[in-house]
């Protein structure tokens, strides 16, 4: 994955907090996936403006300099193959 690429939520998919489920979800036609808390934190930063690198840096700052790079790349790889996000 090119870490300079910019992830955005794919058309047809929506990411939101679900109060009743107490988790972040990805919604798409006639379906829903519940996200783990860490996946939710990553998806929250997808804004079609920040690059993968920027998101890694932001999360790292948020979690006291933790090395989150591999986790973020692994998540985006999976999210892209599921069609949730596009990388440009």
């Amino acid at each position: 994955m090119n870490k300079d690429s910019i992830p955005s939520i794919a058309p047809l998919f929506r990411f939101q907090w679900e109060e009743a489920q107490q988790c972040y979800v990805v919604l798409y036609p006639e379906g829903m996936v519940k996200l783990s808390p860490s996946a939710g934190e990553i998806m929250k930063l997808v804004n079609a403006a920040d690059s993968v690198n920027t998101i890694i840096q932001t999360l790292s700052d948020l979690f006291d300099g933790a090395d989150v790079g591999d986790d973020v790349v692994a998540f985006f790889t999976e999210a892209e193959s599921n069609g949730w996000i596009q990388l440009k």
Binding site: A20, Q21, M32
Partner: peptide, 9 residues
């Protein structure tokens, strides 16, 4: 929706 419904057809 209040109960947690997310998909609406």
């Amino acid at each position: 929706r209040k109960m947690g419904a997310t998909q609406l057809g």
